[in-house]
């Protein structure tokens, strides 16, 4: 087990280095840089900037140095000093901006993950056990729809319904009166009251996907000889189902953390934009549009690292639960 984790951790290092390079490369990709954007903006406003100032700015941010020097400055500051650089657009340290949005992103992602499982698990089991029943058809249909509806469309539709049926606009994570208030029980309840909409929106696609995976896996397992054998040994149907095939069917379920997590993080960006949530998503979008490279790079990097770590966690969990993975079945 320790060997297994050790090996996985070792594999992670080159992956993370590569990811950081890719993240930096992406933010470097657009022609020009933030200064160019700034000049363009000022010109649009009828102002101008003299060459010396431009040069000074470039020099200050190291923008005229070669790619690898910039990369090294960037990554070494992150790794050794925890310094993610400075956001041009917000004129604040990137670390500060992340600190104010990342917790909400993680809160949203993990609560959605739990929500997804809580819903997908029973539906998947029901759907497999009662194959071809009406309930199965309903579940399968919903699963199909869930996969086919883009997140933002669902968000828009829910917003429209909330607006027309309940007559109040939804969006954000807090009501106005709590937005800048210190933390209190009331604020917490208010948060929960707002959290469910993005949770449902974000969770739908994942839930639908998981229902399909679980159903297919469980159906496969239910046809295995050991199920018949367990039945022949006089075990009850419930025990046969819940103990033996489910244990095997759950394994791929666990490994879905690997793709559910990145999907959630990706989905969060677009849903948060629609629902105007104070998370990293909208921040990334604005940063990308205005070439606020350190902010965008930091977000892409952190999200990627989280994904890789999530995959690692799911693999460890899988090894923990499946003796064949743990002990290396031949």
């Amino acid at each position: 087990m320790l060997t297994f984790i050790g090996r996985r951790l070792l594999y992670m290092v080159p992956t993370l280095i590569l990811i950081s390079i890719v993240a930096f490369a992406i933010i470097q990709l657009p022609p020009g840089d933030y200064i160019t954007t700034m000049i363009a903006q000022m010109e649009a406003d009828g102002q101008s900037m003299d060459a010396a100032t431009i040069e000074a700015l470039r020099d200050r941010y190291g923008l005229d140095q070669p790619f690898y020097v910039q990369y090294w400055t960037w990554i070494s500051n992150i790794v050794f000093h925890g310094d993610f650089g400075h956001s041009f657009q917000w004129n604040r340290p990137v670390g500060y901006l992340l600190g104010s949005t990342l917790p909400f992103t993680m809160l949203l992602t993990f609560s959605t993950l739990l929500f997804t499982w809580a819903i997908a698990f029973p539906i998947g089991i029901f759907s497999a056990v009662k194959q071809y029943s009406i309930g199965d058809y309903v579940a399968t249909t919903i699963a199909f729809l869930g996969v086919a509806i883009p997140n933002f469309l669902l968000a828009l539709a829910l917003m429209y319904i909330a607006l027309t049926v309940f007559g109040q606009p939804v969006g954000g994570l807090f009501s106005d009166e709590y937005a800048s208030a210190p933390w209190s029980f009331g604020k917490f309840l208010d948060l929960l009251g707002h959290l469910w909409i993005p949770m449902v929106v974000l969770g739908t696609a994942g839930t639908a996907g998981l229902v399909r995976v679980l159903r297919a896996n469980l159906l496969d397992e239910l046809r295995k000889p050991y199920v018949v054998a367990a039945r022949a040994h006089g075990l009850t149907e419930r025990r046969i189902l819940l103990k033996y095939p489910l244990r095997v069917a759950v394994n791929p379920f666990l490994s879905t953390i690997g793709w559910v997590l990145p999907a959630l993080v990706s989905g969060e960006i677009i849903v948060s934009q629609v629902l105007s949530l104070p998370t990293t998503g909208p921040l990334l979008l604005r940063a990308l549009r205005s070439q606020d490279m350190y902010l965008a790079g930091a977000i892409i990097l952190i999200v990627s690292v989280l994904t890789v770590v999530g995959t690692l966690l799911s693999d460890i969990l899988l090894a923990r639960l499946d003796p064949r993975v743990r002990l290396g079945a031949r």
Partner: peptide, 21 residues
């Protein structure tokens, strides 16, 4: 392949798309 799969897709798309002239 594993590396590409470990990248979160949307940020990657967004980053690349934003980079288009």
């Amino acid at each position: 392949v594993e590396f590409f799969m470990s990248l979160p897709t949307l940020p990657l798309w967004l980053g690349l798309a934003a980079a288009l002239p």
